[in-house]
């Protein structure tokens, strides 16, 4: 399922929708990189599910403490890409 070498905003949108659904009042297709997850209608459980799906789909491990502190898509996408580049498969 991995698109190869990087994790894009669209990849993120797809995983998020599949795992946690979406809030009808939020335009996920808009410029959401720096919106907080809370603004986008997601809470901790949605992020846990999303993180777990990313780990499975991309064969990486996301640091739990770092995951707990990401607040927006940009931070999460950066973290995933960092793992894809340097983290190696688990």
């Amino acid at each position: 399922m991995s698109s190869g070498d990087s994790f894009t905003l669209d990849d993120f949108r797809r995983v998020l929708r599949e795992g946690a659904g979406f809030d009808e009042s939020v335009d996920l297709d808009g410029d959401i990189m720096d919106s907080t997850f809370e603004e986008l209608g997601y809470e901790s459980l949605a992020l846990l599910e999303t993180g777990s799906r990313i780990e499975r789909d991309y064969g990486i491990r996301l640091d739990e403490d770092k995951m707990a502190s990401v607040v927006n898509p940009r931070a999460l996408i950066d973290m995933v890409n960092e793992q894809l580049r340097y983290g190696g498969n688990t």
Binding site: G19, G21, F22, D23, E24, G41, L45, A46, E49
Partner: peptide, 8 residues
Amino acid sequence: LPNRLLPQ
């Protein structure tokens, strides 16, 4: 129902 409720 809101979409957010469906996966759960």
